[in-house]
């Protein structure tokens, strides 16, 4: 008898939960939302998510709490956790472009298409040289590299990172060959350019701006289509102006934002998209982006999915070619990028 009662109770509970789930999709969000950032507190992805969450919750009837869950491979610990939660939009993942590598690195067996991303933006990459290096323009640097292939030292974060991918694209688009020196992150790579261990560094403008303004680094060219103006320094031209072939390989830009499970109800995605659109247009987010040299993307829906698909192909196959992928991208069904 008691057992039967237990069964009935459980059934009732299931029915109640089911009913609640149905009700939720309509009047989402009925309770607080959590964003689980898969990278460490204080980093770029963390900062951007805290910023956008604070703005988005002003357009939603609920609060958005940001927490961190790091570890695993390519942020797989946090992504697996969020993916294990119900697809109801109450648990989101705070992610960046680097998370597309989790699959080929054996972190988990999913492709990135299980997510619907919302891209806030990222900081554009650029090529800079040490203050006392002889190169004044990108053209001079490329000519010098062509005269001595594989000799000029370029610092960037570890193999397969976004900055390394930018460097590889620069080599492909200009035909120059550098001596790539990997560092454990952007900051040590930049320090090495300041101390003269490497002559050239490829990282993002947000990371380099202080060293550029202190005249410890000299910016040569943006690896994005547009020139960017830096206060006290002047315009940094686009590399595309002198090397139009770069257009076929670049830009490869950071895509920082958050994601909801792709199988979440459409009503939930719509509510999130509306709040997201208002938040990226807010003065606070725009002001922060301008001050920190971030470019706002604001992509959601199909556009964001396409962007991440392109990044997934690029990262996965580059890692594979470097021999650093533990799972073949073919096995995961990731198509090879055209170029």
């Amino acid at each position: 008898m008691r057992k039967f009662m237990g069964g009935a109770g459980a059934a009732a509970a299931v029915a109640l939960v089911a009913a609640a789930t149905v009700a939720r999709a309509e009047d989402y969000p009925a309770r607080d939302i959590s964003v689980v950032v898969v990278w460490a507190a204080g980093g770029g992805t963390d900062t951007v998510n805290r910023l956008i969450a604070a703005e988005m919750q002003q357009h939603l009837p609920a609060r958005i709490n940001v927490v961190n869950r790091t570890g695993g491979v390519g942020g797989s610990a946090g992504m697996s956790f969020v993916y294990g939660q119900p697809a109801d939009g109450y648990t989101l993942a705070g992610i960046s472009e680097s998370n597309v590598t989790a699959g080929v690195q054996g972190g988990w067996d999913q492709r990135f298409e299980v997510w619907q991303p919302f891209i806030v933006g990222g900081s554009p990459d650029l090529v800079s040289v040490s203050a006392n290096a002889p190169y004044q323009t990108l053209k001079e640097l490329i000519e010098a590299a062509k005269a001595k292939p594989g000799e000029i030292r370029v610092g960037a974060s570890a193999a397969g990172s976004i900055h390394h991918l930018n460097l590889l694209a620069l080599e492909k688009g200009t035909g120059a060959k550098f001596n790539y020196i990997p560092y454990d992150g952007s900051a040590p790579a930049q320090n090495a350019a300041v101390s003269g261990e490497v002559a050239v560094v490829v990282t993002s403008l947000a990371e380099q701006q202080q060293l550029i303004r202190a005249k410890r680094l000299r910016p040569l060219a943006m690896l994005t289509p547009n020139a960017v103006s830096v206060e006290g320094i002047g315009d940094v031209p686009s590399a595309f102006a002198d090397f139009p072939d770069l257009k076929e390989h670049l830009p490869i830009q950071q895509a920082i934002g958050f994601a909801v499970r792709a199988d979440a109800p459409d009503a939930v995605k719509k509510t999130l998209t509306d709040a997201f659109d208002k938040a990226v247009q807010s003065d606070k987010v725009k002001g922060w982006a301008a001050q920190n040299f971030y470019e706002i993307s604001g992509k959601s829906g199909e556009a964001a999915r396409e962007e991440f698909q392109r990044l997934e192909g690029l990262f996965a196959w580059t890692l594979h070619e470097l021999g650093a992928a533990t799972v073949s991208p073919e096995k995961l069904g990731i198509p090879k990028p055209a170029k």
């Binding site: 570890a158 193999a159 397969g160 990997p182 560092y183 454990d184 890692l319 470097l322 021999g323 650093a324």
Partner: peptide
């Protein structure tokens, strides 16, 4: 673990 330079396990 992954080495910090070439990302090799």
């Amino acid at each position: 673990g992954r080495d910090g330079l070439m990302f090799f396990p």
